[in-house]
Design a protein around this nucleic acid. Structure first.
Lengths: 253, 253
DNA sequence: CCCATAACGAACAATTTCGAACATAGAGCA
DNA sequence: TGCTCTATGTTCGAAATTGTTCGTTATGGG
């Protein structure tokens, strides 16, 4: 990885000005445009810049601050899982969707459903579904957590208890070996538990990554779910747990 | 993924000013209007802006179909009012913002303030302010009303009562001759009243149009406000009411 | 209601930028 | 010295962007 002399400087300029141009840099460093293009190509491959015609800009500075990278992880798998999950939810159903990028994917997959009633503490889910004229969206209150669009706070629990819905669609941070569902933030525990308690059926949606992750806060057990949507066959122990507790396992594609 | 050198900057300008014009941008970037039109078309296709005749505005109301068709003129006046109102709110303040497109404009004008704490039952306001890393946003829960992004429901009142903030920024549907502040939906009455009660100062923001409108539900009186921001001098009777009750009247431009 | 004006979008031409391939220069090393 | 390796310059056809023109469509004023 031969770090180029210009690279640091280019990044600095890009951050200062919000952009760099091939032409400007080639004059600045007194090299040919082609050399600058090669620099920019490398910097973009490393993810430090985004290439545009005529130059480059810092990666998605306005388009979607920070959040995008995480949601880009395994887009296709998430999409397929979400579609599968959505296909099990009929038109006219009422449902909860909790915090997490996975549930956002489900929200997108539900855009063409009709007459849904969706209750969510996920600001992004509300944003997505608000574009569909077919469904009613109810948002729980709370502090808006910028990192993931979560609405955090106890009021959510109260609002959720006012409903008794058909489905709960749950996304989580990690699944332990023994089937424990885990989250990072203890404030979400009660909310998610309330969601599970007040739904007739609970669907867990979690991609393979969650099998190998850790998180500190215990929310519930995989055994409490009615269905489990994922993208790869789960480890044997989890599969057995599902079999023992009659949790339907759906693997996308 | 057809990103362009100008796109990022156009979005920034649109967010700062609440609008962009084809003419203004073509001068700014020194390219022809047609090129700017192409840029705007792409940004709109990606959903980052909403096109209007002569320019584009942030899609703060993807939800609100009527709003998109309004002319840039109205946007401009609202913007001036909003800027004026925002200028009276110091960094570090806590405030309520209620439902209405006017308060959305104020939210945009507040984007560069630091360390604000904003409590709102306006989904669009939350969306706008969530892009700023400087402020904390708290949303009340409720049913998401697609027509204007309002969060409707009684929980809002409860949440609001948990706070005692510095400023309440109130937008309303109409002002009667005698200074009554009016709304269309009775469900908003208690929420807005709670907002006024729990703020040290109440700011009313309303453009000229509101003087000549009618609405059925009484919320409060202009006399209860501490300041009134508008874009044209109000009718004599209202002006007198303000004078009598020490309501500061601020007329934009 | 009609008209003048501005804004719009499509099509085409002119220009700029891109990336690949190849050439060149200099550094490091046996 | 002769060799290799890397960074850079050069050239050129392809692709993308931009400017121009023109007929169509909104908007605001009489």
């Amino acid at each position: 990885m031969a770090q180029n002399l210009r690279h640091d400087e280019i990044l600095k300029i890009a951050r200062d000005l919000g952009k760099v141009t091939v032409d400007g840099l080639s004059r600045e460093f007194e090299v040919t445009a082609q050399t600058i293009r090669r620099d920019l190509t490398e910097l973009c491959d490393m993810g430090h810049l985004t290439r545009v015609h005529g130059g480059a800009i810092p990666p998605s500075s306005v388009i979607n601050p920070g959040y995008e990278e995480r949601s880009l992880l395994a887009v296709h798998e998430k999409e397929a899982m979400a579609q599968l999950c959505a296909s099990k939810i009929p038109d006219g159903a009422s449902l909860f969707l909790n915090i997490g990028t996975t549930t956002e994917a489900v929200a997108r997959a539900l855009l063409n459903h009709k007459n849904l009633m969706v209750i969510t503490n996920n600001f992004n889910v509300a944003k997505i579904l608000s574009t569909s004229p077919h469904s009613e969206v109810i948002v729980t209150g709370g502090v808006l957590r910028r990192s993931d669009g979560g609405l955090v706070g106890d009021v959510a629990t109260e609002i959720i208890r006012q409903f008794r819905v058909d489905y709960a669609v749950i996304g989580i941070a990690a699944i332990a070996d023994d089937g424990m569902l885990l989250e990072h933030d203890f404030r979400e525990v009660r909310v998610t538990q309330a969601i599970i308690e007040n739904a007739r059926q609970a669907f867990l949606v979690a991609d393979e990554i969650k099998f190998n992750r850790r998180a500190p806060v215990r929310i519930a057990s995989l055994a409490d779910m009615d269905a489990f949507f994922t993208d790869k066959a789960p480890p044997a122990r989890l599969q057995k747990l599902c079999d023992d507790h009659e949790v339907a396992v759906h693997i996308a594609k």
